[in-house]
């Protein structure tokens, strides 16, 4: 008897709890923490009822693929070039040209009109001059395997977008004529891992710098600045020989959305020059829209020119990345 009362009350609680949850626009994004909170807050203020699901870029990617037949997301926001390219190839997106896209430089527009990039970030090699004298700092990503840097640089979890991107940036330097990574490349990567502090989470990452010997940060630019702020130390970004991988993050509307109008309105709002400029001011992210960049603080405009980009064809790399990561995870790390 008591059991049935419990079941009945549970059913009632469910029935009342659900309609309230059904309406919000669901957005999958690797943007987490205060950035996610800011986006949610600003979107709400602008009249968009959104619900953010944030997780690591790799995890979100898996989730989107797994949910292919029952898509939960309406909008995908902030995944990097390679992930967006693969998701598009899987047929998960639909075409929509946001109102702000006409001013976007063509290399950030999508030929199929589905994925539009809105900001970019270099994945930088940076160091802490207090711990590592300027003269001794590495000059290139390929310098890291030198004995003097052993134990001084940190490689993050391979599920992180950032880690994946700089590993790819290193491996593309070793592509042979058939487009595969040469043995020399894998030897280099083995050495890179052998000399690295390898961490699985952000906590250990900070800890390696705070109390460990780490003095070289491989990170996306905003992450580098945030880490330096948390550590209360000065950080210097290296202008590397051979260039620095620059990734851009895009937004797309899912093919299976049942809230197309709301999704369009959100994408138009989020990518607009004003929102991008405010975000740049708040978090230092470099927007791609020329108008937004012009409205951004001077520091952000300088960051846009901070490093020389490494020429990388992300679309060509995207299909190979899984195999590379598998080799890294199973044999190298």
């Amino acid at each position: 008897m008591r059991l049935s009362t419990l079941v009945a009350s549970a059913a009632i609680a469910l029935a009342t709890a659900f309609p309230a949850l059904a309406d919000a626009l669901t957005i999958y994004s690797p943007q987490g923490g205060e950035r996610a909170a800011w986006i949610a807050e600003q979107a709400k203020a602008a009249g968009h009822d959104i619900k953010l699901l944030n997780a690591g870029g790799g995890e979100l990617f898996d989730r989107l693929l797994a949910e292919k037949n029952n898509p939960q997301a309406d909008v995908v926001l902030g995944m990097v070039d390679t992930s967006m390219a693969l998701l598009k190839k899987e047929g998960l997106f639909q075409a929509y040209t946001p109102t702000w896209a006409k001013d976007l430089p063509t290399q950030f527009q999508d030929m199929d009109g589905m994925v539009y990039k809105f900001w970019q970030t270099p994945i930088v090699l940076a160091y802490y001059p207090d711990k590592l004298p300027v003269a001794e700092a590495p000059k290139s990503w390929l310098d890291l395997t030198k004995d003097q840097y052993a134990g001084k640089y940190v490689i993050g979890a391979s599920a992180w977008q950032t880690t994946r991107m700089y590993l790819a940036g290193i491996l593309v330097r070793f592509l042979d004529t058939s487009g595969e990574v040469s043995d020399e490349g894998w030897d280099f990567l083995s050495k890179l891992y052998a000399g690295a502090v390898v961490v699985n989470d952000a906590d250990s990452q900070i800890e390696a710098f705070k109390s460990g010997r780490a003095s070289i940060d491989l990170n996306w630019l905003g992450g580098t600045f945030k880490l330096a702020k948390d550590l209360g130390a000065k950080v210097k970004v290296v202008e590397t020989d051979g260039g620095t991988p620059v990734i851009s993050e895009g937004v797309a509307i899912m093919a299976g959305t049942d809230q197309l109008e709301q999704a369009k309105a959100f994408v138009d709002w989020f990518g607009s020059a004003d929102v991008m400029a405010v975000y740049a001011e708040k978090f230092g992210q470099v927007p791609l829209l020329p108008e937004a960049l012009a409205k951004s603080p001077v520091a952000v405009q300088e960051n846009a020119k901070l490093v020389k980009p490494q020429p990388i064809d992300w679309d060509a790399i995207a299909p190979k990345l899984d195999g590379w990561l598998q080799k890294i995870e199973l044999e190298i790390r």
């Binding site: 987490g32 923490g33 619900k51 699901l53 989470d201 952000a202 900070i206 880490l227 948390d230």
Partner: peptide, 24 residues
């Protein structure tokens, strides 16, 4: 939980791990 949660039922262990590994 990590495999099967969705946007409407994100359970506590996921929140704890997100918090524990967050530098925030």
């Amino acid at each position: 939980s990590a495999f099967l949660y969705n946007v409407n039922n994100r359970p506590l262990p996921i929140a704890i791990v997100d918090g524990a590994v967050s530098a925030d």
